[in-house]
Design a protein around this nucleic acid. Structure first.
Length: 270
DNA sequence: ATACCGACCTGTCAGC
DNA sequence: TGCTGACAGGTCGGTA
């Protein structure tokens, strides 16, 4: 579900609202848990820890944990998968279905992890998590070109590959390619240098605009306060199959690339 | 190296 | 009303 702008919005909300708070106790659901670390490890790392900085790395939310006792520096890493949510709530409000973790905070509130499809992942690990790829908002145009210009795969597949660029998902890949005028099935090495530079600029532009709008709410995305984002109103191709292109009027096409629904304008994108 | 497919899960919506 | 199938913001592993 959430891509870079949504994860960034959520992480910023959590930084504002829970950083500095202390986790007093943790409840974890059972059965096939959506965990990379064990329940015991997670509970041990979280309970009693003060929450330091909260930020986004790729599509992950990273909580710095400051532990009174063990001294070591740990991080709690949350990947929301398709349907994961991190919500701040009053203890009195009913626990939503599919709640897998509840962290009770010293301030009296709760931080809840809810994930119907269970594609999300929770992990605790030693500090220093960087993620597998480059950050789209930090990489230089030169390095961006270097990432793609020799690769033979479809450019869209590569934009989704988190070990190259981390944070871009299906919506923003389609939106970036539209703005750059590049078809999703172009082989990356067939893109001219100028096209790759343009794509670099458009990826950043789309992500920044989406962050400013609080992300895209396609079906059930909400931020840490339960608020929806608004960038879906600015989608130019994603979800617009059959509708006219906003530039030329051609019907937007939908095909499958890398197993994902892929939207583009056959006229504007070459 | 790359592409496709199924798996992992649940919910929703369109069509019958 | 209820059933069925397709599809959904993500990732992984197997196979050709």
């Amino acid at each position: 579900m959430p891509e870079l702008p949504e994860v960034e919005t959520i992480a910023n909300g959590l930084q504002t609202r829970v950083s500095g708070d202390r986790i007093e106790s943790v409840w974890l659901g059972n059965k096939p848990e959506p965990l990379k670390s064990s329940s015991a490890e997670i509970a041990r790392a979280l309970e009693g820890a003060r929450v330091g900085q909260v930020r986004r790395v790729g599509k992950h939310i990273v909580f710095d944990l400051e532990l009174a006792r063990s001294g070591g520096r740990w991080q709690w890493i949350v990947h929301l998968g398709m349907t994961g949510r991190l919500l701040i709530a009053n203890p009195q409000t009913e626990l939503p279905k599919h709640t897998h973790l509840v962290a009770r905070l010293a301030s009296g509130r709760e931080l809840r992890f809810v994930d119907p499809r269970r594609f999300g992942r929770l992990e605790v690990r030693a500090a220093g998590f960087k993620g597998p790829g480059a950050e789209p908002l930090q990489i230089s145009a030169e390095d961006f070109v270097g990432l793609f210009h020799r690769r033979t795969a479809y450019i869209k597949s590569l934009l989704l590959n988190q070990t190259l660029l981390q944070g871009v998902g299906n919506i923003y890949a389609d939106e970036s390619l539209f703005r750059a005028g590049v078809r999703p099935r172009r082989r990356a090495h067939s893109l001219r240098r100028a096209e790759l530079k343009k794509l670099h600029a458009r990826v950043r532009e789309v992500l920044k605009e989406a962050i400013a709008a609080g992300g895209s709410s396609v079906s059930d995305y909400v931020d840490a306060d339960g608020e929806a984002g608004f960038f879906q109103l600015q989608h130019r191709v994603y979800g617009r199959q059959g509708e006219p292109c906003l530039i030329c009027g051609t019907k937007i096409k939908k095909i499958i690339v890398a197993g994902r629904g892929t939207h583009y304008c056959p006229t504007c994108q070459k």
